[in-house]
Design a protein around this nucleic acid. Structure first.
Lengths: 101, 101
DNA sequence: ACATTACGCAAGTGACTGATTGCATGTCAA
DNA sequence: TTGACATGCAATCAGTCACTTGCGTAATGT
């Protein structure tokens, strides 16, 4: 839950999600080249890979292996709680579901 | 726009927003004591103040002065673009509205 | 007036983050 | 099998972040 927000905190990761909404089923290199084409983002492959890992841990990106390729898909499900939490104020005793540092 | 995500990245700041949905019009000390009561969060006043500043810059919290008190209110408007961006995929040429580092 | 209350400003510190670098692993084609 | 391709793993480093510390300012109460 908390990971979702941290994942969204980085502009590069948000750009990756944008790219994945345009076209499902992308490999790592497709993500890289798309970032460069659309956002003039010249991040290295390793950097993008680490960003993808973060998105994956947050559940925003799901992956599967296809031969030597790693296929990435977006999953917007983890975003729904954001809406439920503040955009639709329930005014019934709100969550005590987090333990900050 | 980008500040909204950074603002939401911290659990303490999210707890502050939770508190503000429970009760509009809170002073800084009210926010502090509410954080401690609900989340056992014993952050200092200065720490909370800095968090509020971040939320304010992101537009998620609006303030006004009333004597020596600073009144805080939540503003969920900046959260709407999040929904529009990924939860309701438009599939019309998506945004090129950010310039990452 | 004077102390108290509520908050602001700014420097310093430890921890985390994003990016780079170098090498390793696994897959496929010729 | 050998080389090219797609990705994984891990250490390192500069920049950022959250928090503390200490002092300052303005409003209120007695």
């Amino acid at each position: 839950m908390a990971d979702v927000f941290k994942a969204l905190a980085d502009p590069t990761r948000r750009a990756i999600l944008d790219g994945l909404t345009e076209n499902e089923e992308q490999t790592l290199f497709e993500i890289c080249s798309r970032l460069y084409a659309k956002h003039q983002l010249s991040s290295s492959r390793q950097a993008i890979s680490q960003h993808v890992d973060v998105l994956e841990e947050a559940g925003l990106v799901e992956t599967s292996r296809r031969g030597r390729y790693k296929i990435h898909r977006i999953n917007t499900a983890p975003l729904q709680p954001i809406v439920d939490r503040w955009l639709i104020p329930t005014h019934t005793t709100p969550p005590d579901q987090e333990e900050p540092r």
